[in-house]
Design a protein around this nucleic acid. Structure first.
Lengths: 222, 222
DNA sequence: ACATAAAAACAGTCAAGGTTGTTTGTATCT
DNA sequence: AGATACAAACAACCTTGACTGTTTTTATGT
């Protein structure tokens, strides 16, 4: 509408180059897939529903993702990025905001494990158990994600990860967080969680060995 | 055929009374449903598959359970019984077998949370999140189950449940177990779990307040 | 600069396959 | 005889991906 014939550069802002539009379209579809997972679960995530939710015609959907499988695979990667992004964001907030208590770090982790993206991950996780193809892409992502969580926890808690008992305590705590995430899906579990976390902070403070001051086990120490 | 009219007692052993046969038939279908949940997941649990697996004709299936919903509801109850039975069985084994260490109790709990029935529960649990009707029957069962686990843990660990930090430690430990169960679905996690549990036993021994000798907090003390 | 060809993006219909529950029919038990 | 248990075909519905057609964008030759 703005160019073509006369080559007028009057309205350059509206024109989006093709590759960018494709990128946006794919992102819309992947996000809609994740939203559907959260709202309807794995079994309820149909291609029709996704296309409606994304506001994309069925034809366009099939153009960008020829099969449901490809859509799901791409969405899993998309979700992985979001998981890492969420962790990083919470990490940065914790670093910059002052008040570095153990309790706050635990709250931060618990929030991560009760977020919508965790719920979407849970759906994929459980679905992957009985879907070999899906398992192959979900498993490595889950591994990396778990390691990131561990790294973040160790760093924010400021504990010595090379000390076996401390390491086990951190790992167990993260597994507990996963348990929290699971329990939170059926009904709001925040009261109970809060009570446990309050005691848990003391447990960690009393039992985890603090990181050696200058040491930087994984990356930079706090 | 064996009694009433003719009173023929020729083949008394084979003849099973009607109500018993009905009971068996329903049990076969419910068990097949649970097996399908474990092997194929919630989305893969179709009525056709269940009937095939149970070795029951589709007509008979529909006779005993007019709709899929009713089959699932009955199966959930069936599963609940199995969960309680599993807990009770492990409890009895722990009581009668000698060697009552914290580590063994933790192993017992972890086994419970990595068993096939846990996997089936997990499928239903996750499915119930996005299925209001299912949620209504799964939630109360989950609550009761959680309380049973807690009771069992407190009793076998021999700790004082009225002491808030101890109580929180037990609850957190059970949430960790749920996390173990989840992690174990994607790949065998027993090595890691074993390492954590070994340290965890010490953690509990060092931080949980032992139950007062004569006191019986919930039921009978050990 | 411009016309045109090629390619990509997009839209919508259709068919195949699968799942569920209804219905109709038969055998067995009380 | 009546009711219950079982069997199996059938119809309605949904999901998926193939197919056909239209529009828009990009590349190319003059």
């Amino acid at each position: 509408m703005c160019a073509r014939h006369a080559g007028r550069v009057t309205v350059p802002a509206q024109r989006t180059p093709q590759p960018e539009r494709t990128r946006v379209m794919r992102a819309r579809l992947m996000q809609a897939t994740i939203d559907c997972l959260v709202e309807r679960g794995w079994a309820g995530t149909t291609t029709t529903l996704v296309s409606e939710r994304a506001g994309v015609s069925r034809g366009a959907q099939l153009h960008h993702f020829p099969s449901k499988r490809e859509l799901v695979v791409a969405s899993v990667q998309h979700l992985a990025d979001q998981l890492n992004g969420d962790l990083e964001r919470r990490h940065d907030e914790a670093i910059h905001g002052r008040g570095h208590s153990t309790r706050k770090t635990l709250g931060l982790l618990a929030d991560h494990f009760t977020s919508a993206i965790f719920v979407a991950s849970l759906e994929l996780w459980v679905a992957a158990r009985t879907d070999a193809e899906l398992l192959e892409i979900v498993r490595p992502i889950e591994r990396r994600w778990g390691r990131e969580e561990h790294r973040l926890a160790v760093e924010l808690l400021g504990v010595d990860d090379s000390h076996p008992p401390t390491r086990a305590l951190v790992q167990g705590t993260l597994d507990m967080m996963r348990g929290f995430g699971l329990a939170n899906t059926l009904s709001d579990d925040s009261r109970r969680r809060g009570r446990i976390l309050a005691e848990w902070a003391e447990l960690i403070d009393n039992n985890a060995r603090p990181a050696v001051a200058g040491a930087a086990p994984t990356g930079k120490a706090r």
